[in-house]
Computed example of a mutant assay.
Amino acid sequence: MNKQPEITMQTRKNLIDAFWQIYCEKRIEKITIKDITTKAGYNRGTFYEYFIDIYDVLEQIEASILPDLEKHKVIMIDTNAQLPLKHLIEVYSRNKKYFVILLGKNGDPAFHEKLKNVYKALLRPRLQSLSSDDFILECTLECAVSALIGVMTYCFTQEEDPDIPKMVQFLENLINGGYNKIVNLIF
């Protein structure tokens, strides 16, 4: 018997939503399939029609919210300017409920690395001209991307609706020389 696609999509969404509600309160190691299916109102068999295990649910959520690398590359080429921070912050804002948890203290460290890798891939072509030394390039990318993700995570966890223009301005100032001032203050 073929299931109707809209029912199939809704069932999958209900299971994901149930998982997410639990994940917001518990570390993944503490979540059981029974927790998810009870909350969603399905049985274990239904869960296994859509997912391999609990980690598969998390993986599918993460894959769905990671910024689309190809789309961002086109935007960066089209803008022909600095990193389009406002666009990246809008992506973050659209998926705020996931990013705040996944990048938070009980989140998934692997997601942080996946997100950093996406942003590094976007920035690498622009920064390669700054240094022919791969070590310097990779350290620069690590610093820039960590700052970008750190500031966005901080702002979105401190306020329900952070001031996006103010955040973009801060990050642009940081990128355009503010970082040197911070380094000089520290060292």
Rank of each mutant, 00 (worst) to 15 (best):
V74S: 09
C143S: 15
N117C: 10
T153E: 00
Y42A: 01
L103W: 02
N180G: 11
P5S: 03
N184M: 09
L130R: 12
L185N: 13
K114L: 08
T79S: 10
L148F: 08
K166P: 04
E62P: 02
I31K: 03
S64K: 12
T140Q: 11
N176S: 13
D134W: 12
S93F: 03
A40F: 05
L141I: 03
A121V: 06
R27A: 12
C139P: 08
F99N: 00
Q128E: 12
K30P: 09
A121K: 06
I54L: 10
F187H: 14
V57I: 08
L171V: 12
E138P: 04
I54W: 08
R124F: 04
L171G: 01
Y50H: 11
C24K: 15
L174T: 06
E90K: 11
L83I: 11
I16P: 05
S146L: 05
S129D: 10
N184Y: 12
E59G: 09
L174I: 11
Q21A: 07
P125M: 04
K166D: 08
K97Q: 11
E70M: 04
G104C: 08
Y48F: 14
L122W: 05
Q158C: 14
G177L: 00
K71T: 13
N95G: 06
N2T: 11
L58F: 12
Y23L: 03
E59V: 10
T8W: 14
D134P: 13
G178V: 10
G104W: 01
K96Y: 09
Y154N: 14
G41N: 05
L115H: 00
N176F: 07
D133F: 13
